[in-house]
Design a protein around this nucleic acid. Structure first.
Length: 575
RNA sequence: CGGGGAGUGGCGCAGCCUGGUAGCGCACCUGCUUUGGGAGCAGGGGGCCGCUGGUUCAAAUCCAGUCUCCCCGACCA
């Protein structure tokens, strides 16, 4: 491609509304432009990268035995109402109506549509298993789009769905998909890990996320040093502690804690470790109120509460008036003992071994101390409830857990029969009985992979493409002016390299040399081949890698074809 | 939805407090010179100062409302 007529509007100044480095670079390097919040134009360079990633994903999906299809973006509300997700997705879905006021959604994902397709066509166990995939735009009315295409409202995703008659068959496909994902992310040159993940709105029994490590990423994971345990922090398990257990229960006492609202104040007042002041939170769920208890130094991980309850929502009761009405006290003094209305009590696993601890008395200005399970509080369910924190140990092997920030680039799910049940997706087995398909689904955020890749490898000069992502294998920087020997050679080499299947960008613009060098670095060209009058005088071309390694290529006694071949070798070696 | 910030040529910003003919840098156009890490000189084009209303002789500037965008949080395959 010749830069003189390539639409590549690079920016010298950083756009004011970008925060994350990958977002700034995508704007500066002319990959994308914003249309409105969460909606972007892909310019030629950005679109080229997108297609590169798409192609890697497509190849690996095909290799894994998945068949490509294309499903509609406009989807009838009927199917979403059948599955129950018309309401579950709620305001996250872009909804629209046709002229007859029939309701539709712009697909945020495609489980409903594909289950509908398959239920009409696959009736026998002989047709299973089947794996279908598509690469298509998805629409979600994100509550807050951010960081460019990292979290946008229109985005490109590869989604695959598998249908099975047995769990073993699902396990096998799930594993094959895992392997395919591993190859995709390796080929893209990502530094990634797979972790146990919450299933969220997709539902299902087991799920893993593929995370690209990045300090500015919005997700957090824990990874064990020694064994292969790793998890999204929202569902992470931990080795349960018994640090604060004592043998003999002491006498339950009500103590005055006037005006004290924080754990710290109460702990100091009573002269006890803050972890022994147990915090109580009241949550409003689909099935009514629950109390949730964690140690004084801990925080609740709401995702864990939601998972354990099997509820769709759990909202902390956060208004003083409501909490007073429920417990009879203000926030600083609420506790699990003597709650009205048979509010079920869930406590974090770490608390189980706790003895002689302190809780709010549900009476302003008072706490109960020397509280013990069973004797003072009955029917408590102990669950993994608290946030994992620095210093926590692996639930599998006891080694220390590492914490990492990262970007979610893919997720795979064992869905089970959630959608086949609600949408009546059934096949007939060998005995003639009808059974729901056992399903899996597998997503890769294609558009999000662009910032993910950039985020891992950029430097002060710009983007630094890795692996199979680079839109061009080299920048051919032609110095001097039109009509000179350097331009003639540049043109000829460009043609030869194209013959040899190298995608080269020729900078034949009428701008100063510095401009060309900086743009080549900004857009992340893996190597620069510099053809200038100065080099030609001494019979050489300069070849410089993105990292700054330079070498010279002697032109003596070589024709254009031979030079191009030599350059090709350098491109293959350095790129 | 809660908290914070911002809307002034394509981009980055100043001007607003203290009302009086809209400015700077980059980019763009023309010409000449220049050509190895974002060139120089000269000339030029482009803005309903987000929108609506109000105050005033006069509003980018003051007041009210509204819309949009960004950041933090809630939320999120």
């Amino acid at each position: 491609m010749k830069l003189s007529n390539y639409f590549l509007p690079t920016l010298k100044e950083t756009p004011a509304d970008a925060e994350m480095e990958s977002h700034k670079l995508m704007l500066k390097a002319g990959l994308i432009r914003k249309v409105t919040a969460g909606v972007y134009d892909y310019l030629p360079l950005g679109f080229k990268v997108l297609k590169k990633i798409e192609e890697v994903v497509r190849e690996e999906m095909n290799n894994a035995g998945a068949q490509e299809i294309k499903l509609p973006i406009i989807q009838p509300a009927k199917l979403w109402k059948e599955s129950g997700r018309w309401d579950d997705f709620g305001p996250e879905m872009f909804k629209l109506a046709d002229r007859k006021e029939r309701e539709f959604a712009l697909g945020p994902t495609h489980e409903e549509i594909i289950t509908d397709l398959v239920r009409n066509e696959l009736n026998s166990y002989k047709d299973l298993p089947l794996v279908l995939f598509q690469i298509n735009d998805k629409y979600r009315d994100e509550i807050r789009p951010r960081h460019g295409v990292m979290r946008s409202r229109e985005f490109l995703m590869k989604d695959a769905y598998s249908f099975h008659s047995t769990q073993e068959s699902l396990d096998k496909t799930y594993e094959r998909m895992y392997d395919a994902y591993a190859r995709v992310f390796d080929r893209l040159g990502l530094d990634w890990v797979a972790v146990e993940a919450p299933t969220g709105l997709m539902g299902g029994s087991y799920s893993q996320e593929f995370m690209a490590l990045a300090d500015e990423g919005g997700e957090e994971i824990v990874v064990c040093d020694d064994c292969d345990y790793s998890s999204n922090i929202e569902i992470a398990r931990y080795e349960v502690s018994s640090e604060y257990s004592e043998n003999s229960p002491a006498e339950l006492k009500e103590v005055e804690t006037p005006g004290m609202e924080t754990v710290e104040e109460v702990a100091n007042h009573l002269g006890i470790p803050s972890q022994k002041v147990v915090k109580t939170f009241i949550y409003r769920t689909d099935d009514g109120l629950v109390a949730a208890l964690v140690g004084g130094d801990d925080d609740i991980e709401e995702m864990k509460l939601i998972n354990h309850l099997g509820t769709k929502k759990a909202e902390m009761v956060s208004s003083q008036a409501d909490i007073k009405a429920i417990t009879g006290a203000n926030f600083g003094s609420i506790g699990p003992i003597g709650l009205k209305d048979d509010i079920p009590v869930y406590a974090d696993l770490d608390l189980k071994s706790l003895t002689n601890f302190t809780v709010g008395a549900n009476k302003n200005g008072f706490h109960l101390t020397n509280v013990n399970w069973d004797r003072d509080i009955e029917d408590v369910k102990f669950i993994n409830l608290r946030k994992v924190r620095e210093g926590d140990r692996c639930p599998e092997c006891g080694s220390e857990l590492d914490f990492h920030k990262c970007i979610e680039v893919g997720q795979i799910f064992q869905l089970g029969t959630k959608y086949s049940d609600s949408l009546d997706g059934e096949y007939q087995d060998r005995d003639g009985n009808l059974n729901p398909y056992i399903m899996g689904c597998y997503g890769i955020g294609i558009s999000r992979l662009i910032p993910a890749v950039i985020q891992q490898k950029y430097d002060s000069k710009g983007i630094n493409w890795t692996g199979a992502v680079s839109p061009f294998s080299a920048a051919l920087i032609v110095l001097g002016s039109e009509g000179e020997e350097s331009f003639r050679l540049g043109e000829a080499l460009y043609k030869e390299l194209k013959e040899l299947d190298y995608e080269v960008l020729v900078d034949d613009r009428e701008v100063s040399p510095g401009f060309k060098f900086n743009d080549a670095d900004l857009i992340g060209a893996p190597i620069k081949i510099i053809i200038g009058p100065r080099g030609l005088e001494s019979g050489v071309l300069e070849v410089e890698s993105r990292s700054g390694d330079k070498e010279e290529l002697n032109l003596e006694n070589k024709d254009v074809k031979q030079i191009a071949e030599k350059l090709g070798e350098r491109i293959s070696a350095l790129g």
